[in-house]
Amino acid sequence: MTLSSRSTYGWTAALLLLLLTALPVAAAGRAEPGAAEPAQRELTIYSGRGESLVAPLVESFESKTGIRVSIRYAGTAELAVLLAEEGTRTPADLFWAQDAGALGALSGEGLLADLPAHLYEALPDIYRSTTGRWLATSGRARVLAYSPQRVDETEFPESVFDLAAPEYRGRVGWAPTNGSFQAFVTAMRVVHGEAATADWLRAMQANDVQAYRNNTTQVEAIAAGEIDFALVNNYYLLRFTAADPGYPVDQRFFADNDIGNLVNIAGLGVLRASRRTDEAIAFAEFLLSHEAQAYFTGTVYEYPVRADVDPDEQLESFETLLDASPRVDLDALEDLEGTLSLLRETGLL
């Protein structure tokens, strides 16, 4: 017994040692605002965008400006809820979100500061907020993904409303719990009204539409043969084909101006509570720069927000995108509660 208890203590001591060595390393990773040299300019970003995308950009920004950046990576939704909970006590200076709804919601709660007009004046309407409190850093179009093997050229619908027709029965996927789908439903409510949207949702359900978790899983379901069409954002498929050129899924727009081609955004807002707005605005300027815009489209296949940066060759041209996209006030997309109620009424959530 003595022997065994001695080794228990030995083992506990070893664990504590491990802990003691791990702690300082861990603590070193924590940015201590103001703890370094007093002249150090700093910026804290809450990023709903992924690390592998963001980290190289941030390194470039740091080396250009000398501003030291600390980033919290998490889901856009979790960060939006966190920022709402933190309110004026937030340590964040800038929020970089995956969709307009999150920015609209925070703007609606009065947590975002007015941006200087020079940041967004040059952007097309689809990429900025009428409130001037947030702006797009890249565009992400809704498209129709399909299986080139199982879908005939004659079968392509003109409009997303056509997918409720009998020939698409059981062949279409969507993602009711997913933010980008919900933004699309919100846009449909804004443009076509509550009744038409509710009718479409019900007609789709009656047509045996298949529900998936998100965009990626819908693209995979087409490859797996479970569905032939899916309502997704444009860049996911391109991330699959980059790893596997033979990936058996393709995608296209509906007819011009159809609500199914909604252009949503990833974008940013500066927190009203921030005391480092100069640094935050410098970061916003950097993300709108030629370099960063070219990086977005080349790395993650999203649309640049500037006309003078060419979209990746697998994307449509800037003009084609503007023609295809419906005109929707992106600020109206913040009425998510209305969309959730509708999705609940129709039994989708």
């Binding site: 924590r30 940015a31 690390e51 592998s52 980033i71 990576y73 889901g75 991330r239 699959f240």
Partner: peptide
């Protein structure tokens, strides 16, 4: 987590969320 404290699971999420 402290800001900038990117653990393994955060690193995983931060990539899968972009379908990577």
């Amino acid at each position: 987590a402290p800001t900038g404290y990117v653990t393994l699971s955060l690193a995983v999420f931060s990539r899968t969320s972009e379908a990577m």
